[in-house]
Amino acid sequence: MYFRIRAASLSLVIFLCFLFAWHVLTADRRVAADSRTLSPGERSQLLENGMPESDAIGYAQKGLTYEQILQISELGLSLEDIDGAGGIEAFGFTTGGAAEEARTGFPSPALVWEEAYEQIRHPFYDKGPNDKGIGIQLKYSLLRVGAGFFLAVLIAVPVGFLVGMSPLVNLALAPFIQILKPISPLAWLPVALYVIKDAEQASIFVILVCSVWPMLINTAFGVASVKRDYINIAKTLELSPMQTALQVILPAAAPTIFTGMRISIGIAWLVIVAAEMVIGGIGMGYFVWNEWNGLNLASMIFAIFVIGFVGLLLDFLIGQLIRFSDYKE
């Protein structure tokens, strides 16, 4: 327990270091943008137009860009005149030009947090096809992964059982498995789109294809390495093949099978993001890509964190299944 607390403290320290570094790196960017507002060349140009240097710096600090200050200097007004008339806003200038420039740089942790807070407060808002809440995006991604994964279980576990129990089937299927396994699931996407002609089903197919292999191979391995003794017990008790499979082999191989599922769900979650970037429409992958296209970097980074957390959660759920089914010899 004490060891765990120490590990957690260390994790926290690493996280704080990360946040601090992120903060420093992104905050520097804004300061740099401010001081870049007036270069020595720009300052001398303004002096030439009859603007005192103190005024020029004052405008810059108010957040005006060089172009705006140049316009003011061409008007021939002093800072006092402008303040007396109600500030530069009264003349139609918008301040914050420099700050705006900083915002298009990498967002600071605080900015991402603000964005995250907004998104979490309204996860299910729906303002048209290109502007939906993160909850809706997540729901679609999870549904696709769930459907593809479930279909993969239906195929991989029985076939894995066959492969594991029959050396003949094992040898016969080996070439197919070995060739199909290394194919990137995304390579199937065009094939699926052409054959199925439906983006939704194509993405589910891609998840099915990518999650089937680790499950199949682990199931086969788990079934094949069930101790001979356990099978012998089943034989001496005259259990039917079905009873042997369900009451002896399945519980014996369950931890290995679930480990295969754990690998599969991880891969499925990796692949769905990539597949949705390609397919578009809706989903976490599409969301990230759409936010990037709209340069909403804070929102994009928030989405990336969400992907990470959901992946962790999926892994944890299957991990619980492994724990539940595991046994000590």
Partner: peptide, 19 residues
């Protein structure tokens, strides 16, 4: 010819189902 319930076996390594 085959294993059956008319014979019971005690194996050297106990062979209990561990779960």
């Amino acid at each position: 010819e085959s294993p059956g319930l008319d014979r019971a076996v005690v194996f050297q390594n106990h062979s209990l189902l561990p779960w």
